[in-house]
Write a protein that binds this DNA or RNA. Structure first.
Lengths: 343, 343
DNA sequence: ATGAAAGCGCTAACAT
DNA sequence: ATGTTAGCGCTTTCAT
């Protein structure tokens, strides 16, 4: 023990000195798994002892700079409050951990500004791979990112939005179509409302198309007042439902573009003493945990975030390890209607 | 335009060559805010043009290695599904962004292993500051981290747990005491149950002490069956409530250690056709958004995560900038009972 | 006002 | 089997 406390991290150099070998020998010992070179057992022993004694830990920042490899991936999610993304993040983290990667989580709150900021951050502080759920980023912006950095990117998005990138997606257009069709054919509804989100958010137009498709096919006309717009939040779902129920002839069923808004919609109906599902049926989208907590339990189109996270992580690591080939990878994760009590 | 596409990030060297100056001049131009040195307007102009032309972005990994400053902080939260932490993270991110820091979010799911892994990751890839919500980390482990890295750490924890560290905390012991006292004195309950968490989780023993204190003061004996244990989740709250309600003489009120379990508890009561609050009153802890979605709306002890995040971030940046002095900083964020419909 | 050079902590090519 | 050397891209002396 020296008279001074250890003030700072020991470096490889310190270890080398203490072990009486060169710094590169220390490096070799510490990465003997990857290095093909043989080192004498005594040297290994000495080095390991010195490492132990100094409580040495490699500095990954230095290793990154040198090796152009960070052992770190980043994931950009659209809303940290949306349980969908929690499952995705958990799965991704588990897979990353198996391969000894750290995961940097970033949250954009659906804001364009934050999405761009994320790209900037990645350009300036590169990682080995990026997973993202882009809402506003243009194809051009994303191409800039990938061309500038050459970092593999996998997106959770509709396949046509980013034609160059590996993509995982849930087929929400078809799922919406089928859910609404079921509302019409099986449940006998003719007056169906729609609570969507701004067309600037990707799922907005897609789910809207699925909705229109089912109604057109059934030769049902929907009055414009039946289309309400929210912003993914519970509060906006409440507002939209209140608007719908205050109509002279309110819908008997409402398709809501995500569960959070559907929860708000049911809440608003209850407040107005409109019974769900007797007077108005509600279908959500996502299948978050809250769907089984509220009463009536929410009928919803389930997405499978664990599968999504798994496919995204797999696709990304395949790219990182260069086993993907030139072809773009696209994975569809199917959605399924889960009937509960709100319909 | 050269015949080849730009294959990779331009470096400072490339900029220097294009501008016909030395690399260090480029560095000076780009950090002229911090550098005291004067540079001729023409040079600045030339450099800026080259930067523009090459679409140059500084490599922050290199800057970190050289400057021992990363412009990045890390935050470790205990559960990405707990809305409490979403608010904390959002606030921290907003403050960090103002100062041009990136935020690395890590999630431990209350797992000791993940908490230790986080410390390892920070030791090996240092950042400028750390915010954390430790559940299992010992004082020794945390001291190791701070001594080894000299990185400022601010924790959200009971002040006595980590006596050396800057600390932010909600006074949940007193808040629990007061809520239970209110249940007794104002609401007239005498048979009160308790749904807690394992004593190995910090809030467990504290809230239990507050509970015991109020009952002892009122000279009420609580039978051992009235104490149930969950694990923070909705499902565990359901189980605990079912156990309580199946007792020969069930409690007329239950204090639940967090809102998620309280939501589960109310759900279980409803399933058993036990009316809330007429037959059993429920009080939660945290004041998450779900408290106003469920029916009856949940009476709960509110914590103020935005204030917590703000104080944590402030304390951290004060340390990073060295304006804190030697004294340890401790901030209490008060909690308040919010009466709704479940009591 | 600018350039040359050192070096942050590490890996890997090149010696021996 | 081990040491020497050259960088990764940047900031910061130290010269001039």
């Amino acid at each position: 023990m020296s008279s001074k406390m250890i003030r700072t991290q020991a470096t490889m150099h310190d270890v080398a000195r203490l072990a009486g070998v060169s710094q590169s020998t220390v490096s070799r010992v510490l990465s003997r798994s990857t290095s093909p070179i043989q080192i004498s057992p005594e040297t290994v022993q000495k080095v390991l002892e010195a490492v132990e004694k100094l409580n040495y830990r490699p500095n990954l920042t230095a290793r990154s700079l040198r090796g152009q490899k960070t052992n770190m991936i980043a994931i950009m999610i659209a809303d940290i409050s949306n349980p969908m993304y929690h499952s995705i993040v958990r799965t991704v983290q588990a897979i990353a951990r198996e391969r000894d990667y750290d995961v940097l989580i970033a949250n954009t709150d659906h804001l364009y500004d934050y999405e761009r900021h994320f790209c900037e951050a990645i350009i300036r502080r590169p990682v080995d791979g990026v997973l993202m759920v882009p809402y506003h980023l243009t194809n051009t912006e994303l191409e800039q990112l990938t061309h500038l950095t050459r970092i593999p990117v996998v997106v959770l998005a509709w396949p046509s939005y980013y034609p160059q990138l590996d993509t995982v997606y849930g087929d929400d257009l078809k799922a919406t179509y089928e859910a609404v069709k079921w509302l019409i054919e099986v449940k006998g509804h003719r007056r169906i409302g729609f609570i969507g989100v701004s067309a600037t958010f990707p799922p907005g137009p897609r789910r809207r198309v699925g909705f229109d498709w089912a109604l057109t096919e059934a030769l049902i006309d929907v009055p414009p007042e039946y289309f309400q717009e929210g912003d993914f939040t519970i509060e906006s779902g409440q507002r939209a439902m209140r608007a719908l129920l205050s109509l002279p002839q309110p819908p008997t069923a409402v398709f809501v573009c995500n569960d959070l808004m559907a929860v708000g919609a049911i809440d608003a109906a209850k407040d107005l003493r409109v019974r769900v599902p007797e007077e108005v049926a509600v279908v959500g989208f996502d299948n978050i945990p809250a769907t089984t907590i509220i009463r009536p339990r929410l009928t919803t189109v389930a997405q499978y975030p664990n599968e999504m996270g798994q496919q995204m992580a797999r696709a990304l690591f395949d790219r990182i390890e260069g086993v993907s080939g030139d072809e773009r990878q696209v994975f569809e994760i199917p959605c399924h209607l889960i009937e509960r009590e709100s319909t």
